[in-house]
Amino acid sequence: MPTFDSSFITNHTCLRIKDPKISIPFYEKNFGLKHISQLHLPDRTLYILGIENESNKNLNWCAREGILELCHHSGSENDSSFKVNNGNGEKDRGFGHICFSVDNIEEAEKKLLGNEVSFKKKLSDGRQKNIAFALDPDGYWIELIEHGVNKVENKTDLSSYKLNHTMIRVKDPKASLKFYREVLGFKLFHTKVFEDAKFTLYFLGYESPDFKEDSLDVSTQATKQSVLELTHNWGTENDDSFPGYHDGNSTENGAIAGYGHFGIACDNAEKLCREIESEFPEVEWALKYGEGPAKIIAFVKDPDGYQVEIFNTDSFKDWTDGKPPL
Rank of each mutant, 00 (worst) to 15 (best):
I105T: 07
E106S: 11
E107Q: 10
E107N: 08
A108Q: 15
A108N: 09
E109W: 07
K111E: 13
L113M: 13
E116M: 10
K121S: 07
D125T: 03
G126T: 06
R127V: 08
K129Q: 11
F133R: 01
A134I: 11
A134N: 01
D136C: 08
P137T: 04
P137F: 11
P137N: 07
G139I: 04
Y140L: 07
W141G: 00
I142N: 05
E146A: 09
E146C: 00
H147A: 07
G148V: 01
V149A: 02
K151I: 06
E153M: 13
K155T: 12
T156I: 14
L158Q: 10
L158G: 01
S159V: 05
Y161K: 07
I168V: 15
K171Y: 04
Y180H: 02
E182I: 00
V183W: 05
L188P: 05
K192G: 07
V193D: 10
F199N: 05
T200P: 00
L201K: 04
Y202I: 02
L204Q: 06
G205T: 04
E207N: 14
E207K: 09
K212P: 06
D214P: 11
S219Y: 11
Q221T: 06
K224W: 06
S226L: 12
V227F: 08
L230S: 08
T231D: 08
N233L: 12
T236I: 02
N238M: 02
F242L: 02
P243S: 05
P243W: 07
G244A: 08
H246A: 03
S250I: 06
